[in-house]
Simulated scan of single mutants.
Amino acid sequence: MAAKPMTKTQLVAAIAEAMEADKKVATAALDAVTDIITKEVAGGGAVTLPGVGKIYCRERPAREVRNPATGEMLQKDADKVVKMTFAKALKDSVNA
C-alpha cells in the first residue's frame, strides 16, 4: 500500500530544511511558487518545473456525455482542464 501524500506542513518543513531557513520563509516561498503557477496556468500559459514536469491548461470541446444514473445523453459545454506532463528525469527516478 502506498504511503500517505506529503502534507503542506511536511513539505514546508522539508523546504525549510533544504534551504537552511525557518518555516516562515519556506511557507512564503511555497505560497509564492503556488501563486505564480496558478496565475500563469489560469491565463492560458504553461509552467515548466525542471526535473518535475510541465503544468498547462488544455481546452476540451463541447461533447455529449451520458448520465450514468439515467442513461440519458446530455450536451456538455466546452471547458478547460489542467494537465501535467511529467519529466523523464522524474519518471526514471521512480523506476530506478
Rank of each mutant, 00 (worst) to 15 (best):
Val25Ala: 13
Val25Leu: 11
Val25Pro: 00
Val25Glu: 07
Val25Gly: 04
Ala26Leu: 06
Ala26Gln: 01
Ala26His: 00
Ala26Gly: 01
Ala26Trp: 00
Thr27Met: 09
Thr27Gln: 13
Thr27Trp: 01
Thr27Asn: 11
Thr27Tyr: 03
Ala28Thr: 08
Ala28Gln: 10
Ala28Pro: 06
Ala28Ser: 14
Ala29Cys: 15
Ala29Phe: 12
Leu30Thr: 04
Leu30Trp: 03
Asp31Met: 09
Ala32Cys: 14
Val33Gln: 00
Val33Lys: 00
Val33Arg: 00
Val33His: 00
Val33Ala: 04
Thr34Ala: 14
Thr34Pro: 02
Thr34Ile: 10
Thr34Asn: 08
Asp35Cys: 04
Asp35His: 09
Asp35Gln: 15
Ile36Trp: 04
Ile36Val: 15
Ile36Gly: 04
Ile36Asp: 05
Ile36Ala: 15
Ile36Gln: 11
Ile37Tyr: 03
Ile37Phe: 05
Thr38Asp: 10
Thr38Asn: 14
Thr38Gln: 14
Thr38Phe: 07
Lys39Gln: 13
Lys39Cys: 08
Lys39Phe: 08
Lys39His: 09
Glu40Leu: 02
Glu40Ser: 08
Glu40Phe: 02
Glu40His: 05
Glu40Lys: 12
Val41Cys: 09
Val41Arg: 08
Ala42Arg: 13
Ala42His: 11
Ala42Asn: 11
Ala42Tyr: 03
Ala42Phe: 07
Gly43Cys: 03
Gly43Ala: 12
Gly43Ile: 01
Gly44Asp: 09
Gly44Glu: 06
Gly44Lys: 07
Gly44Val: 07
Gly45Phe: 00
Gly45Thr: 08
Gly45Ser: 02
Gly45Ile: 03
Gly45Trp: 00
Ala46Trp: 00
Ala46Val: 02
Ala46Lys: 15
Ala46Thr: 13
Ala46Arg: 12
Val47Ser: 02
Val47Gly: 01
Val47Arg: 03
Val47Ala: 07
Val47Thr: 08
Val47Phe: 03
Thr48Cys: 04
Thr48Lys: 13
Thr48Pro: 00
Thr48Ala: 10
Leu49Asn: 08
Leu49Lys: 05
Leu49Gln: 07
Leu49His: 09
Leu49Ile: 15
Leu49Val: 13
Leu49Cys: 07
Leu49Trp: 09
Leu49Tyr: 05
Pro50Gly: 05
Pro50Gln: 12
Pro50Arg: 11
Gly51Ser: 14
Gly51Asp: 12
Gly51Arg: 06
Val52Asp: 01
Val52Met: 12
Val52Gln: 06
Val52Ala: 05
Gly53Ser: 10
Gly53Asn: 12
Gly53Glu: 06
Gly53Phe: 01
Gly53Gln: 11
Gly53Asp: 09
Gly53Cys: 05
Lys54Val: 05
Lys54Thr: 15
Lys54Ile: 01
Lys54Gln: 10
Ile55Pro: 02
Ile55Gly: 02
Ile55Leu: 11
Ile55Asn: 07
